Computed example of a mutant assay.
Amino acid sequence: MKYIKLPHTDLEVSDICLGTMTFGNQNSETEAHYQMDYAFERGINFFDTAEMYPIGGNAQIFGNTERYIGSWFKKSGKRERIVLATKIAGPNRGLEYIRQPLDFSKKSLEEAVDLSLKNLQTDYIDLYQMHWPERVMNMFGKRGITHTDAQWQDNILEVLTVFDGLIKAGKIKHIGVSNENPWGVMKFLNEAEKHNLPRISTIQNPYSLLNRLFEVGLSEICMRENVGLLAYSPLAFGFLTGKYLEGTPADSRMGLFPNFVRYTNENCYKITPKYQELAHCLGLTLTELAIAFVYHQPFVTSTIIGATTIDQLEENINAFEVRLTDEVIEAINKIHESQPNPAP
């Protein structure tokens, strides 16, 4: 396991981050604890969650994921050895049961942090992230933006001011954004520098063989400004395991939660077999090739992996031992050029 400092922090995190969005719906509390035990034994000290989890949530199971992590902390006594990241949900996603209004006002931010602290059974959060922007923008399923959100009032300075207070109160240590675009990242950085307020350390965005949009604009910003990418969906919701090429298993994420599907368009079905063929020629699984490609990138700080079974988690972790040559990267890029970013 390799460890790296989160940018502009003193936190050393494993280059593998355990994603937990299945805990509390697809995974029981016992299974969740088993995954965290196993991940920790393998050297993973970085856990990522969110107030809205588990995936496919509703008012009845809202917050289960954080609660399961909290009960693991209490049982294991390992809180001080884990770098913990969680997120506040933003608006525009049909999650009204979380709070009203769903925004990043001072009231909402403070309520969200306090609830997460309670659920997680901890006094502090190492990395607190905005799950998606407050403004309406091209987050999922779109490559570009055709108009700006005229209803959104720029409140980034106010948001950073609230975070400053939460950091001074000891409730959070550092902040990050998620599902952001280049304008948003630079706006947060500029306001922080101008007003001597907390600086974003990380951005959590999708990045995989099927979605390399991060490379356009965001990669240069993050490398020049030292903002670390926490790459999520390196397996594209499991599509890059190859299991969906013969149909959609009923118990899979795409089978259970079709409203969260993002990687099943025609072009994904066309290009994924090409990556699979390359992997097999190299003596690798498609999973190994896909994960190895992500962590190979210089702008990736940590890669978030998630699983519903220990076998899946073991395979995902083992994939980090694979090393790709320049020739393999060139072969990947040739496939990519034939159908760039099929899953925005």
Rank of each mutant, 00 (worst) to 15 (best):
residue 216 V to M: 09
residue 141 G to F: 08
residue 316 N to S: 15
residue 204 Q to N: 11
residue 222 C to K: 03
residue 17 C to P: 03
residue 223 M to K: 11
residue 59 A to S: 15
residue 140 F to R: 12
residue 149 D to H: 13
residue 321 E to R: 12
residue 309 T to I: 15
residue 9 T to S: 08
residue 118 K to D: 09
residue 66 E to A: 13
residue 19 G to Q: 10
residue 100 Q to N: 15
residue 229 L to W: 05
residue 194 K to M: 15
residue 313 L to D: 03
residue 211 N to G: 00
residue 139 M to T: 15
residue 9 T to E: 03
residue 184 G to F: 05
residue 301 T to M: 11
residue 257 F to D: 05
residue 257 F to C: 05
residue 51 E to A: 14
residue 236 A to H: 03
residue 51 E to W: 14
residue 172 I to L: 11
residue 178 S to H: 09
residue 198 P to G: 01
residue 335 I to C: 03
residue 329 I to Q: 07
residue 88 I to Y: 06
residue 137 M to L: 10
residue 61 I to C: 04
residue 77 G to K: 08
residue 240 L to T: 00
residue 302 S to T: 14
residue 73 F to N: 03
residue 24 G to D: 07
residue 295 Y to N: 03
residue 181 N to L: 07
residue 54 P to Q: 11
residue 87 K to D: 00
residue 2 K to P: 02
residue 16 I to S: 01
residue 331 A to W: 06
residue 99 R to F: 02
residue 288 E to C: 05
residue 188 F to A: 10
residue 332 I to Q: 01
residue 186 M to A: 11
residue 291 I to L: 10
residue 184 G to P: 02
residue 114 D to E: 11
residue 337 E to R: 02
residue 237 F to P: 03
residue 146 T to Y: 09
residue 137 M to Q: 14
residue 178 S to C: 14
residue 163 F to Q: 08
residue 33 H to M: 05
residue 56 G to H: 12
residue 155 N to K: 11
residue 257 F to E: 06
residue 343 A to G: 09
residue 104 F to G: 06
residue 231 A to S: 13
residue 32 A to D: 08
residue 274 K to W: 04
residue 71 S to C: 02
residue 126 D to H: 11
residue 161 T to W: 10
residue 256 L to G: 01
residue 186 M to F: 09
residue 185 V to T: 02
residue 59 A to Y: 13
residue 152 W to R: 03
residue 1 M to Y: 13
residue 179 N to Q: 05
residue 290 A to H: 05
residue 64 N to I: 04
residue 7 P to R: 05
residue 282 L to P: 05
residue 182 P to S: 04
residue 32 A to P: 11
residue 39 A to C: 03
residue 275 Y to G: 00
residue 334 K to T: 13
residue 144 G to A: 05
residue 158 E to I: 04
residue 329 I to L: 12
residue 284 L to F: 14
residue 273 P to F: 06
residue 101 P to G: 06
residue 39 A to P: 03
residue 308 T to A: 07
residue 21 M to Y: 00
residue 234 P to Q: 02
residue 292 A to K: 01
residue 68 Y to R: 09
residue 270 K to N: 12
residue 235 L to E: 01
residue 208 S to V: 06
residue 339 Q to N: 14
residue 169 A to N: 15
residue 308 T to W: 04
residue 335 I to A: 03
residue 90 G to H: 09
residue 294 V to A: 04
residue 322 V to K: 09
residue 117 L to R: 00
residue 286 L to R: 01
residue 29 E to I: 08
residue 57 G to T: 15
residue 292 A to P: 02
